[in-house]
Design a protein around this nucleic acid. Structure first.
Length: 445
DNA sequence: CGTATTTGACCGGCGC
DNA sequence: GCGCCGGTCAAATACG
């Protein structure tokens, strides 16, 4: 399934441009760091201008113009600094990659030791198809591997569905619901309510599969029924997907690195706190927007994909939400039998559900995946692996530096790997041959 | 004075 | 058809 992320396309375009620019700068170090190569472009551009002014000579020393000499010297120094910057950034990237790889290996080892059946299945799948977990750890280059990833993901869900479904223990499911309804957020827990309604009103499988879509998003039904052009419909669905991030914060906004402009505020029904609407102002026409309901828990809902390069501080959250949305939508795409994947039609507990990190919601007008960063302590968490994972998420919260740490949290490979396992699990649950699906959902009430 | 925020009006979708 | 509600617009206002 091609994912038309405009921001990712821009990154790839810049990488191509960098390849050309690299020839000019005679830089042997490859790389895709946008900041560095932007600077190099500027330096070269300035030198070109100088060259024109000096009659084609790159070096203008000795022409008697002290000002130009100083400028040339500064530019040369900038080049040196940029080259060193590039080398250092590459070194940091390499260290980060090594760290991520080792961390994942450690997690897998711990999962093996403390395994439930499902974790083993995911681990084995990861061994056989290394493309499944890794792309999400390297979301910066995710777009180029969409197709391969989707295929492997689709194939793996069929083979592994039974094992993965074993993850969805009724206890965990109940825990998710309880925690959600007991949260400080004053907005009614629509997730569990709507899920119950769907199950009550749509007892048959067919109705259950179509219940949410038929009620909320008829356009998705038409997609299935009329077999319309899938890429264009996929594009529209992509735009509709939302990623909701819940986090405790005193601020009215999360410092995710992007520039947001408030364009409206409304009192949402059933919530005494106002809902604010923001637009990304880093680029004109950027579709990414969000609304926030500010209590002790700040709910930030991202909609759309940035259509412009992002600063490093914004990449973490943006890539995480982008990956979450793409994973959500990859699961909601029509399956080979022409049916919408029913797993996305229900709120679901996810792996790592002990931490309540992520839940899928079917109640919103558009498919929404919620990333919950509000849990400060693991409830009923028994394994060391889960506690380790939780500590990575909650330590910044306890130190009251949440805003600054949000990007780091979302950049944590554990976080994204949890999302991978989450969607894997949900898709696995939906396998039509798996009788456990309905059992779990019925016990989920 | 330019920019960001506030806030009431407006619009479209949806349920009754 | 009507009313409700979520989302957006745009003029007024605040702020640096």
């Amino acid at each position: 399934m091609p994912l038309p992320f405009s921001d990712k396309r821009l990154v790839l375009d810049e990488m191509d441009f960098f390849a050309e620019n690299k020839k000019k700068s005679q830089d042997d170090h490859g790389g895709d760091d946008q900041i560095v190569h932007h600077k190099e472009v500027n330096v070269d551009t300035n030198l070109d201008l100088l060259t024109k002014h000096t009659g084609g000579k790159r070096s203008i020393k000795g022409d008697g113009d002290d000002e130009r000499s100083e400028l040339a010297a500064l530019l040369a120094e900038m080049q040196d600094v940029n080259a060193e910057n590039l080398r250092l950034r590459e070194l940091v990237d390499q260290v980060n990659n090594d760290y991520n790889t080792l961390h994942m290996q450690l997690i897998k080892m711990k999962q093996t030791q403390h395994s439930h059946g499902g974790y083993q299945a995911i681990e084995e799948k990861g061994k056989r198809e290394s493309t499944v977990p890794r792309p999400f750890l390297e979301m910066g280059g995710f777009a180029g591997r969409d197709k391969a990833f989707s295929q492997s993901f689709e194939g793996s869900k069929l083979r592994e569905s039974k094992s993965v479904v074993e993850l969805m223990e009724p206890k965990n499911v109940q825990q998710i619901c309880t925690t959600s309804s007991g949260n400080i957020v004053l907005e009614p827990n629509k997730d569990t309510n709507s899920k119950a309604r769907i199950m009550e009103e749509s007892p048959s499988d067919q109705e259950f599969q179509l219940g949410w879509l038929s009620n909320k998003v008829p356009r998705l039904n038409s997609l299935r029924d009329h077999n319309v052009d899938q890429p264009s419909e996929t594009m529209s669905i992509i735009k509709k997907a939302r990623v909701s991030v819940r986090a405790r914060s005193e601020s009215s906004m999360i410092a995710d690195g992007c520039q947001w402009r408030k364009y409206g505020q409304k009192m949402a029904k059933g919530n005494p706190c106002p809902r604010a609407y923001y637009r990304c102002t880093m680029s004109t026409g950027c579709p990414v927007q969000r609304c926030a309901e500010d209590t002790s828990v700040l709910i930030t809902t991202y909609e759309g994909q940035h259509n412009h390069p992002l600063p490093p501080t914004a990449k973490a959250m943006a890539s995480t939400t982008s990956a979450a949305a793409s994973m959500l939508l990859s699961g909601s795409m029509p399956s080979s039998d022409g049916l919408i994947n029913p797993s996305i039609l229900e709120s679901a507990a996810l792996p790592y559900s002990h931490n309540n990190m992520a839940t899928l919601s079917c109640s919103a007008p558009f498919p929404t995946i919620t990333l919950d960063l509000t849990q400060q302590s693991g409830t009923n968490s028994s394994s060391q692996q889960q506690r380790d994972h939780l500590s990575l998420l909650t330590t910044p919260l306890l130190s009251e530096k949440f805003n600054a740490a949000t990007a780091a949290i979302t950049a944590d490979p554990n976080f994204t790997s949890a999302l991978v396992a989450a969607v894997t699990s949900i898709i696995g649950r939906s396998h039509p041959n798996n009788s456990a699906t309905n059992n779990n959902t019925s016990e989920d009430q």
